[in-house]
Design a protein around this nucleic acid. Sequence first.
DNA 1: ACTATTTTTTAGGTGAACCTAAATTTATAT
DNA 2: ATATAAATTTAGGTTCACCTAAAAAATAGT
Lengths: 220, 220
Amino acid sequence: MLSLVEENYLKAIYHLSDAGKSAVTTNALADNMNNRAASVTDMIKRLSTKGVISYEKYRGVNISEKGRRAALKVIRKHRLWETFLVEKLNFNWDEVHEVAEQLEHIDSPLLIEKLDSFLGHPKVDPHGHPIPDKHGRIHEVKQVQLSEAKVGTQGVLHSVNDGSPKFLQYLSKIGIRIGARIEIVEIMEFDGSMEIIIDDEERVFISRQASENLLIREAT
Amino acid sequence: MLSLVEENYLKAIYHLSDAGKSAVTTNALADNMNNRAASVTDMIKRLSTKGVISYEKYRGVNISEKGRRAALKVIRKHRLWETFLVEKLNFNWDEVHEVAEQLEHIDSPLLIEKLDSFLGHPKVDPHGHPIPDKHGRIHEVKQVQLSEAKVGTQGVLHSVNDGSPKFLQYLSKIGIRIGARIEIVEIMEFDGSMEIIIDDEERVFISRQASENLLIREAT
DNA sequence: ACTATTTTTTAGGTGAACCTAAATTTATAT
DNA sequence: ATATAAATTTAGGTTCACCTAAAAAATAGT
């Protein structure tokens, strides 16, 4: 059994390791969790004892299969709750993260199964992120950072990397939503900003930073 | 700001004091929280420092106005979540308590307001208990323990005192639900058990212990 | 009224999850 | 290659929420 704090660390490790593909350093974790490195070392040892990560001193941590499953359970709950908040309670997509951070730790398999059916077994959350099924399976969709695409690329906004209220409010303001059609008109050499057309209507300029956080599925 | 554990103590104090009407002893609290008396003394001191209870050594604790408001907020959340679980997620009324014990600590006023409207501003939870409004006001309904009524009494089951799964499953089994009409046919002198008619149909015998936990609104 | 019993508190200890300061290991730069 | 810098760990300390054992106060019984 993992504590609430342990679950949060594990989730951070999962995300920082890009779903287990790479190792995570102590400092990266400390940064992400807003804790000191020494505290992270403490926790790492505990998580290692519990078998959810593997750890070699000074070498960073890797999530184990057991840890991956635990992390995906929390992520499944987080994303289902976010969907509930937006679809049923009419939250805006920029208001859900903090609340879902709390709800994701509620421990009741029955609740999650019932919530899942209540929502109609959604595949993605309001930010376009896939919701793992009860066995921890995710159907990843091939998507590209807008910043990596070239002029002329057309696609559909599939998800956002940055879920912060500030970013999401900015997107709403300029008319970008999940599912919107996006076409790259021009890319500015000097700062990487780009001009795009949204839904064949609006032309807007977005910064390089913004385009890095927009993931599109390219039209073929 | 109260911790999760502090909220649980405060809620227990509220209930054990009959909504603040009487003092609560250390042992009663220890019993209720499944902790040792020494631990309770610790916590009592902390709650007293925070101003949510008043405490005189060896004299038990009394909830303060500030404490009462805090307790009612938790109770409001608990009962709204129970209603959600039963009305929207199709939980049985005997399955909701444990989950609601977790959900009641989620801290988001916006969430609770939205949940309240989603549910249509319910006045009572699935066990017939009144849901405090956002200002902590409760509309108590005049109700009597079935065990205190006399032969011939007719009324409607309004709420249950004991919310344990075992009791609720028993009630379901013999056909008793909130809102059912109940008429007392006979009371056995020797053990206080009684024969009742449910919804003018079923005749059943229930123990004194059961009748003490059934609260009816008498028909006038 | 005084002793025995019960209730409550105090004293001191534990693990979880943090901290700072110091020591150690690894990485970087010339 | 070695000195310096950066990253990480160790050592020791804190608060919260529990514990046991012992002491103190309140209550009950004769």
